[in-house]
Design a protein around this nucleic acid. Structure first.
Length: 876
RNA sequence: GGGCAAUUAGCUCAGUUGGUUAGAGCACUUCGUUUACACCGAAGGGGUCAGAGGUUCGAGUCCUCUAUUGCCCACCA
């Protein structure tokens, strides 16, 4: 066969070519896989990327990991479904589009109005979504595109409505006024975990409300004190005990206050004056105190972070202006007794960085502690907690399970309404004070749909089953269609930062809707960082575009650089050199394939075990071992290790030794061995480097595509051949020893007669090794002459026609130094070993096999030391 | 403040339940283009496993403390 393959693997054209063929084959869709009815399923629902931006390296790593799981399972005969989708990411998307129209047209969303604004959002979506899908394809992801979903498309709208109505009818969704994290810029509430904390310099003011007030308080926010309805002190605090229970009127900067003095254990006596002004409407903790003590609630700050009307000169001022004005007033009246610089944690919006205002507001909530009759009177929290504690759902790292349970234990009712325009509409209608919850507006005039939208995690929480046809596939409590076949899914593989935000919600939602877990295993992966270990981000400009890397090094290389040498759940530093290394490896694999293919004959004879060479036997034995290790690693999700093992076999054993040996030492079966190993090796590399493997596979004359080929089973011609391993490895050692000790000098290349190897080390080895060495060096005959003692002239005289001499090192001193060092090391090792073996406790306590091994080793090492000493003597 | 990680060669990281003289890749030094591959091959230098204690016959591995770094949670009015 004459196959002209290019020296380097051509990435771009092969990637495009094969991805097209794969898609056309239909094999990404489990319905098209040729499998027995009862084939096990393996399902991953892709964590849907936000459509706010193109994919970054983190997404690329996520795709590489999931695709390798999927491809591996497909090769193992599973009915594999990897379901793609994108996430509307309500707040994030709205913010991006708002910024965009502000920049391009100078307009705010209010200028455009809700309808026009949403039109703009959908336009924007169209663009980014197609960019994302294109990138995903470029990564070689074998996703079933026929099932593509979006968190805000019609099927998902239906699912979300259904869920909301169901939860509401069971009393899990309720409306209530709560202090929420309000972002005055986004005009929306934020979930607790959407709030970030920034350290900032602040001033702690200490003052009295008025001259007559007996207690001084400390605060960083004097403007909120307009709404104080109590002063809290520690019940143990002797300074204030006498006042507890009293209600004292005060005139605070012209605003009349009625302040109840209450005792609360949470007040720290050491902080400030040990007394806390309670502002129920604008502090989470104060709100809780107000509930406990039945305090009145006075709202001071409005949704625009301005003071409400009715507070005299401070009305309509922004919070900062009001603060200055009040501080000035206190100072004027000599009420301000302290002003201290402290560093304070400021809550800011995770999207826009604006300072959060805690405000009371009417919101929709999901009750997480309410027992659900239908589910054995357990609450969502209890069910979700039990799933992790009982091991129903497995986490790839114990620390992630802990994080999940910790968070779940402390979970409070989940606020699911958001005051933004882009998102799932709430299926609730208002008419005056009346509220109706249902899919359509009730009959009659004047019903207006709730203007809020739902927290994006509400719809994301349903992702594992809303993508599989729920609620349509779940009639009368029974699953049908895709839902029956693919739910619960097997693996969910998001980044670990999504444990609380997303994983937790999926667990609650799935148990609630279906009474079953959403997935069996949570495989959380780390973040992709830059070389300095910093998060990649647009603003820092340290981000790397996966497409750029793919253009430079190819998809296979990018995938390998994101998966090789990584450990489950740990962060990964990515930089260009890594992709370069992987590219080099892909090219090595390409050339191994190219070499074997170039030697393939039209008809390869089957392997005849009786005629195998030593090298054949060695590589087959090694290969068997490699296969079982790789399979075991993948079964335990340790793909980084699987890659390391495969790489070592491919490069260090197959390429460096077996292929070299096969050039000069072959049997009639050697071509078959080469072919067998290449075939199976390509299958094993396929999950990690799909393109180069499929390309090479196409030259093997196989009827089917590699992606639906079969993971190599134990092959009858393979066996563990320890004898071959030992012998061949001795030869390797001998060759290395010679390389080590001698330099090769070329003399008169025209003459072709017996050559000469002068070596001490080779003496130790069998005739086999001499043969192999002679073949390897291209010499037809070889003599082994003991020791390097013979003067060069004598050797030349003995073999005047040799074309190559392997000569002893010229520098005797250097050689002596080397030998001396080795001898010292060996002797100190002997000392250690004998000391240990002289220790009775070791001999008694250590495993007998280990003791025996150590004894043998000691003997071996002593022999080695002797030989080293002899060699040194000769050099003197 | 609480929690979780990490700390191993110049760099990036492996090191499975404690048990051979702690490994790999890159980088570096030297040598080499014989027809798979220079995106290659050969050889070499380089580590008191962050530090201090402890458990053990034996510790990179287990325990305690300390230091540095990162992340998460809570948040002081």
């Amino acid at each position: 066969m004459n196959k002209e393959l290019p020296k380097n693997f051509e990435t771009a054209e092969n990637e495009e070519h094969w991805y097209k063929i794969w898609r056309a084959s239909g094999f990404f869709n489990p319905d098209n896989l040729d499998l027995p009815e009862d084939a096990p399923t393996y399902t991953i629902i892709l964590p849907p990327p936000n459509i706010t931006d193109k994919l970054h390296m983190g997404h690329a790593s996520e795709l590489a990991i999931q695709d390798l799981f999927i491809r591996y399972k497909r090769l193992r005969g599973y009915r594999t479904l990897w379901l793609p989708g994108t996430d509307h990411a309500a707040i994030a998307t709205q913010t991006v589009v708002e910024k965009k129209i502000k920049k391009e047209q100078g307009l705010s969303r209010h200028d455009l109005g809700r309808v026009e604004f949403l039109k703009k959002v959908w336009e924007f979506l169209g663009e980014t979504q197609s960019a994302i899908l294109n990138q995903t394809e470029k990564m070689g992801a074998s996703l079933d595109w026929s099932r593509l979903a979006f968190t805000l498309d019609d099927p998902r709208r239906l699912a979300v409505r259904e869920m909301f109505i169901k939860m509401h009818s069971e009393g899990l969704i309720y409306r209530g006024e709560r202090i929420v994290n309000w972002c005055p810029r986004c005009q929306s509430t934020l979930a607790d975990d959407e709030v970030e904390h920034e350290t900032q310099a602040a001033k702690l003011y200490t003052f009295k409300y008025d001259a007559a007030f007996p207690i001084a308080i400390s605060t960083t926010r004097p403007e909120t004190k307009l709404g104080d309805t109590a002063v809290a002190v520690n019940p143990k605090d002797d300074r204030y005990k006498q006042y507890i229970g009293q209600t004292i009127a005060a005139n605070f900067c012209g605003v009349p206050l009625k302040l109840q003095i209450i005792a609360d254990r949470n007040v720290e006596m050491e902080f400030g004056t040990g007394a806390l002004g309670v502002t129920p409407a604008h502090s989470m903790i104060d709100w809780q105190m107000a509930e406990e003590h039945n305090l009145p609630i006075v709202k001071v700050i409005n949704e625009d972070a301005k003071i409400h009307p009715g507070f005299g000169p401070y009305s309509d001022l922004g919070v900062l202006e009001a603060r200055e004005a009040i501080v000035a007033e206190l100072r004027k009246n000599n009420l301000l007794t302290g002003e201290e610089d402290i560093s304070n944690n400021l809550s800011v919006c995770y999207r826009c960085g604006t300072a959060i205002e805690p405000l009371p507001s009417m919101q929709w909530f999901i009750a997480v502690d309410k027992p659900i009759e239908r589910l054995g009177n357990k609450s969502l929290k209890q069910i979700a907690l039990a799933a992790a504690v009982d091991g129903e759902i497995e986490f790839n790292q114990a620390r992630f399970a802990k994080k999940y349970t910790d968070w779940m234990t402390n979970l409070r009712d989940w606020c699911i309404s958001r005051q933004i325009w882009f998102g799932h509409e709430i299926p609730a209608w208002h008419k005056g004070e009346e509220i109706y919850v249902g899919a359509e507006a009730p009959a009659g005039e004047g019903w207006v749909q709730d203007s809020d939208t739902l927290d994006t995690w509400f719809s994301s929480g349903m992702w594992t089953f809303s993508t599989l046809g729920w609620p349509g596939t779940f009639a009368g409590g029974r699953k049908s269609g895709d839902l029956a076949r693919f739910h619960p899914t097997q693996t969910m593989a998001p980044g670990y930062e999504l444990i609380t935000l997303w994983v937790s919600r999926m667990v609650m939602m799935s148990y609630y809707a279906l009474g079953e877990k959403p997935f069996e295993k949570v495989y959380l992966h780390g973040m992709v960082l830059d070389k300095q270990g910093k998060k990649m981000s647009k603003s820092k400009g340290n981000g790397i575009d996966p497409l750029d890397m793919i253009t430079l090094y190819g998809t296979d290389a990018v995938r390998l650089s994101l998966t090789a040498g990584t450990t489950a759940g740990n962060d990964l530093k990515f930089y260009q050199e890594k992709a370069e290394d992987s590219r080099n490896f892909v090219n090595k694999l390409w050339n191994i394939g190219r070499f074997i293919i170039s030697q393939m004959e039209d008809e390869t004879l089957p392997i005849n075990t009786a005629e195998l060479t030593l090298a054949d036997r060695w590589i087959l034995s090694k290969f068997k071992h490699t296969k079982s290790l790789v399979t075991a690693s993948l079964e335990s999700y340790e793909y980084g290790q699987a890659i390391d093992i495969l790489k070592e076999f491919t490069w260090d054993q197959l390429a460096d030794w077996y292929l070299e040996a096969s050039k000069f030492s072959r049997s009639a079966s050697t071509p078959a061995v080469l072919k067998l190993i290449l075939e199976e090796l390509l299958v094993m590399w396929h999950p990690f480097a799909p393109f180069v493997t499929e390309t090479l596979w196409s030259y093997l004359g196989k009827p089917q595509l590699l992606i639906v080929s079969h993971w190599p089973d134990q092959n009858p011609t393979e066996y563990t051949d320890t004898e071959a391993e030992t012998q061949f490895e001795q030869i390797i050692e001998a060759i290395v020893a010679i390389r080590n000790a001698r330099s090769v000098n070329k003399i008169e290349p025209a003459k072709k007669l017996p050559a000469l190897i002068i070596t001490d080390s080779v003496e130790l080895y069998t005739q086999n090794s001499a043969l192999l060495i002679s073949l390897r060096t291209g010499l037809s005959e070889m003599q082994i002459i003991s020791s390097g003692q013979a003067p060069a002239e004598a050797i030349f005289a003995q073999t005047p026609n040799a074309d190559i001499y392997l000569s002893v090192p010229v520098d005797r001193e250097q050689e002596k130094t080397r030998l001396n060092k080795e001898l010292t090391d060996t002797q100190s090792f002997i000392e250690r070993l004998s000391k240990q073996l002289a220790n009775d406790e070791f001999v008694h306590n250590a495993p007998p096999a280990l003791v025996a091994k150590e004894r043998a080793r000691l003997a071996e090492t002593e022999t080695k030391a002797q030989s080293l000493q002899e060699q040194l003597k000769k050099l003197d």
